[in-house]
Design a binder for these strands. Structure first.
Lengths: 134, 134
DNA sequence: TCGATATATATCGGCGCTCGATATATCCTG
DNA sequence: CAGGATATATCGAGCGCCGATATATATCGA
């Protein structure tokens, strides 16, 4: 829809991998912790995402370790992955900004109908000016 | 996944309606224009989203007009819709910020001369500082 | 005047993605 | 020794988005 924007799950996985390589289960925990429990990636979602991101060249298998009898498969971002995540972050920030500006616009419009706004209730909140989503 | 976050299409529709009531086709054009052509909501997506948002109480039918023989069905945000959009904007801004901070962290780590710290499993967990996604 | 394009609504099948359940295996704690 | 955390992986169900399709009017250029 947005030309080429990733799914939310993919975004969270890339974000979890942005600072250092991690293995699947580690991505799950990191995402949860990082978001204060807000975001909870499901196991059933993770591995499909990992495969897709690998196929798309946004992540690569970094190494495999065996810790205490358990296999750990570490992934890391590729340069394309970093670029994709960065681009997505920009789209999100732009979208959030656009939404907020328009909400403020709507509030101003709703306050307008009556004569003049009684000072003190709704601060002008500054003009939206430029910038759509992008 | 994120407790309760809306789909992208829903977000764009709510954003298009945030400043004033619009009709379906108007939402399509507004979204496209507002984003500089980046976002292109599809007709096949729109009406389903409109129905879902109405069912969820985030938008309501504002009025119906007949302009030059063509029916126009205008929708507007409810208070819940404004709140939901605002909350989503905050999640997006927070997510974008988190992603960017982590990318910067990864760059710093990569630039650091390999002092190699095999350490083991739990990376210092370090500062993290403020803010995850929320 | 005819065809293409824009406006404006709506539906439907296909498909991709997420979820929940399920499976397997090891280690730690009570 | 049972239960939970760690760690991987798969699969069916269901939902949401896309593209195609349908219907109807107005406008503009050939």
């Amino acid at each position: 829809m947005t030309a080429k924007s990733m799914t939310r799950a993919a975004f969270f996985v890339l974000t979890a991998l942005a600072d250092q390589p991690r293995h699947g289960y580690g991505i799950l925990r990191e995402t949860e912790e990082l978001s204060g429990g807000e975001v909870h990636l499901r196991v059933g979602t993770l591995y499909g995402v990992l495969d897709r991101l690998t196929a798309d060249g946004l992540i690569v298998l970094d190494r495999e370790e065996v810790q205490q009898g358990r296999l750990r498969r570490y992934y890391r971002l590729t340069d394309d992955g970093v670029a994709a995540l960065d681009a997505e972050a920009e789209r999100m920030a732009a979208g959030a900004g656009a939404a907020r500006r328009r909400i403020a616009e709507g509030r101003r419009a709703a306050a307008r109908p009556a004569a003049q706004d009684p000072a003190g209730l709704e601060p002008p909140t500054a003009p939206g000016l430029a910038g759509g989503f992008a």
